[in-house]
Design a protein around this nucleic acid. Structure first.
Lengths: 257, 257
DNA sequence: CGGCGGCGTTGACAAAAATCAATGCCAGAA
DNA sequence: TTCTGGCATTGATTTTTGTCAACGCCGCCG
C-alpha cells in the first residue's frame, strides 16, 4: 500500500471497485488520494467536470440545481461508500457540495478510464443511456420540487415542442411555429407534473388566453413563439404575458395564414 | 434481413445498438420482433420483469408508480427511439403503459445479455450503480410530486434512519430505537423535499409532538419505533398519531433509560 | 334520433403550504 | 461575560393549489 494512497479504502468501495481484479485494484490504489472538504465547500460546479472520480469515505455530499431566481433543489444525497463523479465525462449540470465535513477517496479520471477502455461499445452505450435518463429524472425533480403549476405546464409543453420541433410546424400558417399532438390526457399530464386535472386545465387555459399557445381541438397544440413558451417555463407567468422579446435576427413569429 | 424481424429498425436504435458490430447486429436483428400495444394497455407491471428489451418505434410509453391510496406519479415518458427495459434484470418497481398506441421493436433478453456477457465487471458495476441512482431519483420524484409535507419530512427521516439503523441505536436507552444525526440544516431539508424552511420546521415539531421522533438538540434524532415512522411516511399523519401497532414478536419499543 | 360516458372546463370553496414577521436558542467572537 | 449572527421555531396572514360540484362537448352506441 503506497504511503500516498488511502489505505485500504479502495477495497471497501461500493459498486465500482469490488469487481476489479487484484491487479487493477493495485493500480488504482496506487493513485488514490484522500481529499477533505469542509461543510459548505463546493466540490464541483455545475459547469465543470471533476478531474477525478471518487467514493465518499465520510460525511455527506449534496447534489443541487439552482434556478436563475435562486430557488434550489437538492437532487441527491451521497453517503459513505457512494460514488461521486460522471464516468463518461462532461459536466453534470449539478453542483456537488459538502453538506457536512467530507472525506473523499479520489483517483484520477484518466487512470480510471484506462481500465474502462477495453470495454466494447454496447455497455458503454447502455451506460450513457442510463446516465441520460438519470439527468432527465433529476431535471424533472427540480420541476416537481420547485416550479409553480404554471411553470410545470409550460415546461411540459416545452419538452414536447422541442421533441417535435420542425416535424410538423410547416403548414400551420405560422413562421417559426411548432405544432404537435399531446400524447397524454389532462389527467396524465397532472400525474406527470404532480398536479390535479383541474390545475392543469386552468393553466392550459391561461397559457392559451395570453397567447403563448393555441389549441386545435383538445390535443393539438400550436406554439407560435418558442421564446415565450420558454420564458413561461422558467419564470412567473406575468412576464410571459408581455410582448415576445425581439428576436436577434429581427424576425417575428406572425400568423401568415 | 429475416422476414420475421422488424426490417432495419435495429439500425436506427438510439444508444444501444449503434455501437454493435455488423455481426452482433445481424444476430440481434434475427430475433427482433415488432409488438404493438393499444393506448392504455400495460406493457409491464411493477413486479414483473420484461422478458425482452425494446426500443420504441412509434407512440409514447409512460412509466408510473402508484401509491397504495391511488395517488399516481409518472416518472418518465418514452418516445420513439427510446430504450425500454432494465438491462441488468429484476423488476423496476414501475409500471410501463402505452399512453397512446405503441409499437415496440423487441429482442429477447437472453440474446441481448449474451452480447453483454463478455464485458468485465467494472462497467457492469458502474451500470448497476447508475441504475440504482436512477431508481432512487424516480422514487424521489414520487415523493416530490405526490406526497404531503408531513409525508415528505417523515420519508426523509426514514431514509436516514434506515441508513444508520443499528449504527447508533445502542446506548440510547431504547429498545429497537434508531438514533442518528441530521446531516442537513432545516433549509437544506426544505431544498431536498421541495418545501420551505417553515414547513419543514412545523412538521418536525408535529412529528415530535405525536411521539414519532424525539430530538436531542437540533440535529440528533431518535426514532423510538420505526413502524410508526414508516406509517407516517406513507399515509396522512393522523393515522401515525395512534398507538404503535403491536409488534409481531409481542415486544414494545419503550424507554428503559 | 336521444341517451350515455369519458374527458375537459369552470366556478365556489376549502385545505395546504408559502410568506411575512417576531422571537428564541445557541455557539463563537470580542 | 455580553454581543452577535446564523439557524430554528412559532404565529398571523396570504397565496396557491386541491376539492367538490356543475356543466359543456363530443363520439359512440342503442
Amino acid at each position: 500500500m503506497p504511503a500516498s494512497g488511502c489505505d485500504g479504502c479502495i477495497a471497501r468501495h461500493k459498486g465500482l471497485c469490488s469487481a476489479l481484479s487484484p491487479d487493477e485494484l493495485a493500480r488504482l490504489s496506487a493513485v488514490a488520494r484522500r481529499r477533505r472538504f469542509a461543510a459548505g465547500q463546493t466540490i464541483v460546479d455545475d459547469q465543470q467536470e471533476l478531474p477525478y472520480l471518487a467514493n465518499v469515505l465520510s460525511g455527506v455530499v449534496k447534489l443541487t440545481k439552482t434556478l436563475v431566481d435562486g430557488r434550489e433543489q437538492i437532487v441527491e444525497l451521497q453517503f459513505p461508500a457512494d460514488f461521486v463523479g460522471r464516468p463518461l465525462g462532461g459536466p453534470s449540470g449539478f453542483r456537488a457540495e459538502a453538506a457536512i465535513n467530507v472525506e473523499l477517496c479520489t483517483f484520477a479520471r484518466s487512470r480510471f478510464e484506462q481500465v474502462m477502455r477495453a470495454v466494447p461499445g454496447v455497455e458503454r452505450r447502455l451506460l450513457q443511456h442510463t446516465l441520460d435518463a438519470l439527468d432527465a429524472a433529476r431535471a424533472w425533480m427540480v420541476l416537481l420540487g420547485r416550479k409553480t403549476a404554471a411553470e410545470k405546464v409550460a415546461s411540459f409543453l416545452l419538452i414536447l415542442a422541442q421533441r417535435f420541433r420542425g416535424a410538423a410546424g410547416a403548414g400551420s400558417g405560422w413562421v417559426n411555429a411548432v405544432r404537435f399532438e399531446l400524447p397524454l390526457t389532462r389527467g396524465e399530464m397532472a400525474d406527470f407534473l404532480g398536479l390535479t386535472i383541474e390545475t392543469v386545465s386552468r393553466n392550459m387555459t391561461r397559457l392559451r388566453s395570453i397567447g403563448v399557445i393555441r389549441l386545435q381541438g383538445m390535443r393539438t397544440v400550436i406554439v407560435p413563439d418558442m421564446e415565450r413558451l420558454t420564458a413561461a417555463s422558467e419564470c412567473p407567468l406575468e412576464h410571459a404575458a408581455q410582448e415576445p422579446a425581439p428576436r436577434p435576427d429581427g424576425m417575428r413569429a406572425v400568423c401568415v395564414g
